[in-house]
Nucleic acid binder design. Structure first.
Length: 739
DNA sequence: AGCACGCCGACT
DNA sequence: GTCGGCGTGCTC
């Protein structure tokens, strides 16, 4: 006898788990994971929709009480079942439970939706109702009294409010309905976010010669039976969006739909307006401010065919379009495309998988492609399409690299080098604008020498060591530990330590050095409130300030034609993080930052301050030379077996009890050694995660590298079983990350 | 979410 | 005693 694990509609927390059902003989062949079935559920055996997530031989429940699957759902749920198949793929690839995978893929209804869906209206005689209320008051019908009083006052009530807060269940409502006093109404009300000023404008899509060539190249690829994903490699300002628009137009014309993925931070009013101007009400936009109910509504509109284009962040990838034609991924290299929650999927890979299953195409674009995407383009797995010309032939800004070690020798200890200071006063004199950029995202407290630029690195992993309590240095990959040296091991200088400067300090220095300049600061603190992000950028755009100081957020989006100077305070901040991506991230950030200067008529200038002027990420960003950067960085990845040269699985463990966690990680390590052949094993750790403790929960990581992804997947599956069987892991939260 | 079960107050 | 509203808890 075989049994199926079925998830009943994902609508309520309480039924958010799998239930076992018997498979009738005649459905034996059809039932497999991903199939949508109809099953009897609950006391009244009401028929409900369910998703089969697995088939087993063993009954986990009292056999006599297991019910039978009624039928395979026949109503045309192809969109849904395709998404379920995608969830199954995500579960296999990234490691998670089927429930977690389904939850990320299928739109989840929530309470907000139910509230607005069912409304109760008062529709009887007011006089009669008041008499009835009189009659009811003090009687035993307390729920009826409560309810009548409330509806008389409000005239209209939400169903969930009536049943939960007033305790007026079905029986109470029945009573009033029979009397003809109330009317229940199912309201299908969409919550469309405020978009009154977003309308279609009459605009022709004008492509330049180069963009036209790119479009033709892509169309040619699409004619192939097995069209490859396209990597659109175009420098900043080469007009990638124009190309996307043209492609989307084509897809819509063919009666298909398109999804456009955009990093959350770039989802500004400007971007959204461009899409509305082009496609009018065919477009729907998702953003993270949307409640789950609002997102659900947008997905529903897509499913019904009311919109043809969905624009949004990572999660827009799961828009239930019935005839998907194209998925566009803008700024493909952005780290926000990787999910932080289980399943830790990457939107690029998942988009390609979805496109493969639904015979759609993928086009991704970037000025600084991720190593992963570019290496695939080089190998021919993706089609590489280039856009080289900068808008209106604007020259690239002139870039100078300032060696901060020299500044120290000259006795300048300020965060502003002599050159940057001079450039700033020149810019102010000409009444132009400047941006100062502090790239300290996820700043991990590396230690470097101010005199020679030497960075303390792990001898085994070649990533920066992090300072702990000011006395010890720790590697967050393998756990290597050493005492923090008092003098630089390379040059003997005592000027060794962490870099301590925030945007506030820079703001203070600017106030002192340039008291006449108007300075705006943009960082996590100043953008906490809603819309403040847009407000600051808009103010700067109107030239209400001369200098904008900020973290990564200032280098994305918005064009400021009056900005002629970009200063990078300390390029090393993102260069010396404790993971293997940092060279790539630094190159991307610096390239973007440099590209911000001189977007208008006036030529631009950029100053990059660093302790490591010879580093290839910085040199290549200064010359905007992607090829050079790619060669160096790929060499490093190949040497160290980091992705994309190999695959890496990270096992992440968290637990309140540090000892228990360490023990568990040790057992995991021992288990992996036992189940895998020695020569293929490339394990690092276990070690404390880069944030070793959050809210009293300890965190540890273990990395496993191998050229073959299948090997890692096999290890993960064995490990998942091992963890499930051993109750010792119950108290430990375990997460997998595959890259 | 939807349904049954069982408690408890009120009426016969 | 019994009837029925109303809160609680379970659903393979």
């Amino acid at each position: 006898m075989t049994y199926a694990d079925v998830i009943i509609d994902i609508s309520h927390e309480k039924v958010d788990r799998d239930f076992q059902y018997r498979i009738p003989d005649e459905l034996e062949q059809e039932i497999k994971p991903g199939v949508v079935v109809t099953v009897p559920f609950g006391k009244g055996n009401t028929l409900r929709k369910g998703y089969v997530i697995g088939v087993t031989e063993k009954a986990k429940y009292d056999t006599s009480r297991i019910k039978m699957i009624q039928s395979v759902s026949t109503d045309d749920e192809t969109t849904e079942s395709r998404l379920i198949a995608l969830a199954a793929w995500m579960k296999e690839t990234y490691g998670s439970t089927m429930i977690q995978a389904l939850k990320t893929v299928l739109p989840v209804k929530d309470k907000i939706r139910a509230k607005e869906k069912r409304l109760i209206f008062f529709c009887g005689e007011r006089q009669a109702a008041e008499e009835l209320l009189e009659e009811l008051s003090g009687s035993r019908f307390r729920a009826r009294e409560r309810f009548l009083r409330a509806i008389l006052e409000a005239g209209r009530l939400e169903y969930t409010y009536a049943s939960k807060e007033l305790g007026a269940g079905a029986s109470v409502l029945d009573f009033f309905e029979k009397k003809g006093m109330i009317r229940l109404e199912n309201q299908e009300m969409y919550r469309i976010p405020n978009q009154a000023d977003l309308v279609k404008e009459d605009c022709e899509l004008c492509l330049n010669a180069e963009q036209n060539v790119a479009v033709k190249q892509i169309f040619r690829e699409w004619k192939e039976p097995e069209a490859r994903p396209v990597l659109l490699f175009g420098v900043t300002g080469s007009g990638k969006t124009q190309v996307y628009m043209r492609l989307i137009q084509q897809v819509i014309q063919e009666g298909k739909q398109a999804i456009v993925l955009i990093p959350e931070i770039a989802l500004t009013y400007q971007t959204v307006r461009r899409f509305y101007a082009m496609f009018g009400d065919k477009v729907s936009v998702l953003n993270s401010r949307l409640s789950q109910g609002e997102r659900y509504d947008q997905f529903k509109r897509a499913k019904r065919g009311e919109v043809q284009v969905m624009v949004g962040p990572r999660s827009a990838l799961f828009t239930p379009f019935s005839n998907l034609g194209l998925i566009v991924i803008d700024e493909e290299h952005e780290s926000t495309y990787k999910s932080e929650n289980t399943p830790r999927y990457h939107a690029r890979e998942t988009a390609i998988q979805r496109a493969r299953m639904e015979h759609a195409n993928v086009v991704m674009g970037s000025a600084t492609p991720s190593l992963s995407a570019y290496s695939r383009a080089e190998s021919g797995e993706y089609l590489l399409v280039k856009l080289n010309a900068r808008y209106k032939e604007r020259p690239l800004p002139q870039v100078s690299i300032v060696d901060l070690r020299e500044e120290l020798k000259k006795g300048n200890r300020s965060v502003l080098s002599t050159e940057l200071k001079a450039s700033l006063s020149e810019t102010l004199r000409k009444k132009e604008q400047a941006m100062l950029f502090l790239n300290r995202r996820g700043y991990a407290g590396f230690v470097s020498c101010r005199a020679c630029g030497h960075v303390m690195k792990c001898p085994h992993c070649d990533v920066s060591l992090s300072e702990h309590n000011g006395r010890r240095l720790i590697c967050h990959y393998c756990g290597y530990e050493t005492v923090k040296p008092q003098v630089c091991p390379s040059c003997g200088s005592p000027h060794i330590g962490g870099f301590k400067a925030g945007t506030q300090q820079i703001e203070k220095v600017l106030e002192k050095d340039f008291p006449e300049a108007r300075v705006l600061r943009m960082d996590f603190d100043t953008t906490r409130t809603k819309d403040s992000y847009e407000k600051i950028l808009a103010a700067f755009s109107r030239h209400e300030a001369d200098i904008l100081v900020g973290t990564q957020m200032i280098v994305k989006g918005h064009d400021f034609p009056d900005v002629t100077l970009v200063g990078v305070i300390a390029a090393d901040l993102s260069l010396n993080m404790d993971d293997y991506h940092c060279g790539e991230r630094t190159f991307q950030l610096l390239t973007q930052a440099v590209g911000r200067a001189g977007r208008g008529v006036k030529p631009g200038h950029a100053v990059i301050q660093t302790y490591q002027p010879e580093h290839y990420s910085i040199r290549a960003a200064a010359t905007q030379d992607y090829a050079e950067f790619y060669k160096e960085e790929m060499g490093y990845r190949l040497l160290m077996d980091y992705p994309p040269a190999a695959h890496m699985m990270t096992i992440f463990g968290a637990c309140q009890d540090e000892e228990l966690l360490k023990k568990a990680m040790y057992y995991i390590e021992a288990f992996i050694c036992r189940v895998s052949p020695k020569e293929e094993l490339h394990m690092i750790g276990p070690a404390a995660a880069s944030v070793g403790k959050v809210k009293d929960v300890y965190r540890q990581v273990l990395h496993l590298k191998n050229v073959d992804m299948a090997f890692l997947t096999a290890v993960r599956e064995k490990l998942e079983q091992y963890i499930e069987i051993n109750s010792g892991f119950r108290k430990i939260y375990i997460q997998f990350d595959m890259s």
